[in-house]
Amino acid sequence: MNTTDTTKGESRETTSGKELVSIFVMGKKYEIPKNLTIMKAMEYAGYKYIRGCGCRGGICGACGTVYRKPGDYHIYVGLACQTVVEDGMYLTQLPFFPANRATYNLEAMGSDPEEVYKKYPELFRCVACNACTKVCPMDISVMDYISAIKQGDFEKATELSFDCIQCGLCTVRCMGEMSQYHIAQMVRRITGSKIKPESSHLKTMVDNIKTGRYTRAITDIKSMSEDQLRKVYQAREMEPSEAPEDWKPADNTYL
């Protein structure tokens, strides 16, 4: 990085009167209208994405971006589709970073934390530096969920890691060289399938469908004319919006 390039750019205007700021994409300077996101700024500059762009809505984890500001030693992170450009910001996207992922057979497993420790022994290389939490663009307490996993509290780890978009920035920074997000994924799946209570009403419904409880009703309704169907539709009983969980309809013919 040529330091003279990172001095704060002077504010200028486009012909349409929009205020411009300078950003440095992998060291190269571009002038961009203020208030654009990094992603839109890259496109304004003329880049066309293949990698580094996905949902454009902050949930897919394709556009993790690292940046610095002039005269500031801190590392900043953000999603390119969500972060607004700042004058003098110099950045690179990290569309991919190699990560270690263990293969496992969920169906054959129990909920013993040892199963995770066996697959990911590097968990215990965490030195509690907290760099993962600092780098997370989703403000997830990565180090805390890693520590919950080490303590065997998978429900807590599931809750703490739930908003993870698997962008991989934590993995870039980890001193213990672990791939936190893959470990969290395995833990969440164990929580969902082995630890959280089962839903008995769901099983009952699936069984009732299999034994043909609703077959007749569906066959009848499928053979109705459009007019008949409209009438039945208009007359259907609505569960009130503030009804309690155990609300029951007056008509239970088709239950």
Binding site: H201, A217, K222, V232, R236, L255
Partner: peptide, 13 residues
Amino acid sequence: TKGWKDSPYYHYL
């Protein structure tokens, strides 16, 4: 999934 108030019939409608 809640057989006390719902069924595939109502979902179909």
